[in-house]
Amino acid sequence: MARKDELGRRGEDLAARFLEDAGYRIVARNWRCRQGEIDIIARNTDTLVFVEVKTRSTLAFGHPFEAITTTKLARLRALAALWCAEHRPHATRIRLDAIAVITSRSGPPAIEHLQGVF
Score class of each variant (00 low, 15 high):
F118I: 04
L114A: 13
E112F: 00
V27L: 06
E112S: 12
G8Q: 05
T92S: 11
R34F: 10
V53Y: 12
R9K: 09
H87C: 05
T92N: 12
W83G: 04
L19Y: 04
E37Q: 10
E52A: 01
R32D: 14
W31V: 01
E112N: 08
L14D: 06
D21H: 12
A91Y: 00
R43Q: 08
V117Y: 04
S104Y: 02
P108I: 04
D46P: 13
R88Y: 13
F50I: 08
W83T: 01
A81C: 08
T55W: 06
R34S: 14
F118V: 13
E12F: 03
V53F: 13
V51G: 00
K54Y: 02
D39I: 04
I41C: 06
A85G: 00
L73N: 06
E20L: 00
I38Q: 13
A22G: 09
E37M: 00
G36H: 02
V27A: 03
R75M: 11
P108V: 09
I94Q: 14
L14W: 01
G23P: 10
W31S: 12
R75A: 12
F65Y: 10
S106E: 15
L76F: 12
T45D: 13
I26V: 07
E6R: 15
A98T: 07
V53K: 12
S104A: 05
C33L: 01
R25D: 11
R95Q: 10
I41M: 10
S104C: 05
E86Q: 10
M1P: 12
L79V: 11
A91G: 07
V49R: 06
E86A: 14
S106Q: 14
G107K: 11
S104V: 03
R29F: 06
A100S: 07
T45I: 13
P108Q: 07
A22V: 02
E37G: 09
F18I: 10
T103H: 01
H90P: 12
R75Y: 09
E20C: 00
T71L: 15
I111K: 08
M1H: 15
A15S: 03
T55P: 05
P109V: 06
R43H: 00
P109F: 08
R10K: 15
A80Y: 01
L14G: 01
L7M: 07
R43I: 02
H63W: 00
T55N: 00
Y24H: 08
A78N: 10
P109D: 07
F50N: 09
H113P: 00
D21K: 08
A42P: 07
Q115P: 14
E52S: 03
A110M: 12
K54S: 02
L96V: 12
I111V: 05
